[in-house]
């Protein structure tokens, strides 16, 4: 299978802090890669480097054949192909659910209003929120907000979706709906990179699990291998901690 994301030797410094110390990550088409690791391991930073919300200090990143770090790359066009879902949803509070999804369709893809709203409505339908199109984020539950955020990314028909702890800001009873939306996305063949602590979801849906610590990839493999028989002591300790919860 062809790799759609190729990141090699990614470094990231925040002042004196060396957050990523040469990370390699390749993601094949239609693959779901799960990134786990303790807080401060650099997993979220890695994700944010992939669409250049963070500027890597060094390394090479290619997504769908586009060199992301090339100065000549039109970063706004490249980002259309990379959807992102944030921990804190980041929905625009002054727009309805439909407005949130339609904004980039109209402003970036330059679709006419009717077409943009049609596509936005279809995306909301995919996450089961067609009936909430006219609601403002403040009128939606956290789980519904996150599903709108997923629809906002999916509507642009990205080649890859990045999920940055999509369920950690949610009350437990609201997690299910978001995971369901992600599962359906996965079944439709979307390539996904997920940073999350939802180990049950990882076991059930991930093709590969990547364990990061201190800015490096420590171990990776199929979920049953990494969870069932981790090779590294650090991985074992982390999984023991997570399982206790």
């Amino acid at each position: 299978m062809a790799a759609i994301v190729r990141a090699h030797g990614i470094h990231k410094h925040f002042g004196a802090l060396h957050v990523l110390r040469g990370v390699d990550l390749e993601v094949a088409e239609r693959e779901l890669v799960f990134v786990i690791g303790p807080s401060g391991s650099g997993k979220s930073t890695l994700l944010r480097c992939l669409n250049r919300l963070e500027e890597p200090s060094g390394g090479r990143i290619e997504v769908d054949g586009i060199d992301m770090l090339d100065r000549r790359t039109d970063i706004n066009r490249a980002r259309q192909r990379i959807g992102m879902v944030f921990q804190s949803f980041n929905l625009y509070p002054h727009m309805t659910a439909l407005g949130n999804v339609a904004l980039a369709l109209r402003q970036v893809l330059k679709l006419p209003r009717g077409e943009a709203e049609g596509r936005a409505r279809a995306a909301l339908e995919r996450v089961g929120l067609a009936d909430r199109a006219g609601h403002y984020p403040g009128q939606l539950s956290g789980g519904q907000q996150q599903r709108v955020a997923i629809a906002r990314a999916v509507a642009l028909e990205p080649r890859v979706m990045l999920f940055d702890e999509p369920t950690s800001a949610l009350d437990p009873e609201l997690v299910g709906g978001v995971l369901q939306a992600m599962r359906e996305l996965r079944e439709s063949g979307m390539t996904m990179v997920v940073v999350s602590h939802e180990m049950g979801f990882a076991r059930a849906a991930a093709d590969r699990v990547v364990f990061m610590d201190h800015g490096l990839v420590v171990e990776q493999g199929a979920p049953e291998a990494v969870f069932g028989a981790p090779r590294e002591e650090r991985t074992r300790a982390f999984i023991r901690q997570i399982d206790r919860h």
């Binding site: 980002r79 259309q80 944030f86 625009y92 970036v108 990314a153």
Partner: peptide, 9 residues
Amino acid sequence: EAARSTGLS
């Protein structure tokens, strides 16, 4: 960030 991640300038 959310806006830029969807390709807005």
